[in-house]
Nucleic acid binder design. Structure first.
Length: 272
DNA sequence: AGTGCGGCCTGTCCGC
DNA sequence: TGCGGACAGGCCGCAC
């Protein structure tokens, strides 16, 4: 589920809680087999450690102690929440008991999430992080660099901008949304996109991600902010999930087609 | 090397 | 109402 805006929203929620309760007194692993096993050493490594910062890289949350980084991916259905005594839930796989009495719970029904551990000095070599491309909200994400990377790439531009080795954080929802705003058909081959079109795609990827962060992300089913609130950006989606409904600009019914195994939405009149 | 597909899991929804 | 099947926002690894 969660793409960059949802992960960033969760990061901000966790940052608020951890700035007031920074010490993890202990960790409880209730179900350590997520997509890959949670490292057995995690509880002992985190015991009585201070979380000095919580960062985001791509769709990963990075909890940093003085010596270690905890790497967490929400998968499709992962959530963090404050879990007071008595609020235990099915699929609560991990608890962080914070000094001060707050308990954080990681809940993930589909268990596509990731919880991994690295030393801070080796974190960039971690298997989940080492191949990641550029951050879309950073200055290095430019039309010129996308044009260069797309050379020789025949995949649809929509799948290309979802490729985490190219640019991170853009998933199935925001790729369709950004290409709609840019007026570019999602099925066009990446290598055929002109520089002027890349300029619009870059600008609109940044715009849609920023606006979704401002609205606390997109909640379709599972995604929740740490405080339990739904996001709001689902009310601002232009094409995603709107098959057959009128385009908000030209009233043409929105089209849907599976590209690279993922549902893709576009307006056949507004996107060239 | 690049591409496309299967697999990982569970929950929900739709049609019969 | 019950059941089977399709589908869901991610990402890796594998064949071609």
């Amino acid at each position: 589920m969660p793409e960059l805006p949802e992960v960033e929203t969760v990061r901000r929620g966790l940052e608020k809680i951890l700035s007031e309760n920074p010490v993890v007194e202990n960790v409880v692993l209730r179900r350590p087999d997520l997509r890959e096993p949670i490292p057995e050493s995690l509880p002992q490594v985190l015991r009585n450690q201070e979380i000095v910062s919580i960062r985001r890289r791509a769709k990963y949350l990075l909890f940093e102690t003085p010596d270690h980084t905890i790497i967490n991916h929400l998968g499709m259905t992962g959530t963090w929440r404050i879990a007071p005594p008595g609020s235990e839930a099915t699929h609560d796989h991990v608890y962080f008991n914070l000094r001060g009495g707050v308990r954080l719970a990681f809940n993930d029904p589909r268990r596509f999430g990731i919880l991994d551990l690295a030393t801070r000095e080796k974190v960039t070599e971690n298997k989940w992080l080492k191949h990641l491309g550029v951050e879309p909200l950073d200055a290095e994400f430019t039309a010129e660099s996308m044009l260069a990377k797309a050379k020789g790439r025949s995949v649809p531009v929509k799948n290309f901008i979802m490729d985490q080795k190219v640019v991170v954080g853009v998933g199935n929802i925001y790729s369709s949304e950004a290409l709609y705003l840019a007026g570019v058909k999602p099925q066009r081959q990446a290598c055929r996109i002109q520089l002027s079109e890349w300029k619009s795609i870059v600008k609109n990827v940044q715009k849609v991600l920023s606006r979704s962060i401002e609205r606390g992300g997109t909640t379709l089913n599972d995604y929740r902010q740490v405080e339990g609130h739904a996001g709001n950006f689902q009310n601002h989606l232009k094409v995603y999930g709107r098959t057959g409904e009128p385009c908000r600009k030209c009233r043409e019914p929105v089209k849907m087609k599976v590209l690279g195994g993922r549902s893709t939405y576009w307006c056949s009149k507004c996107q060239k």
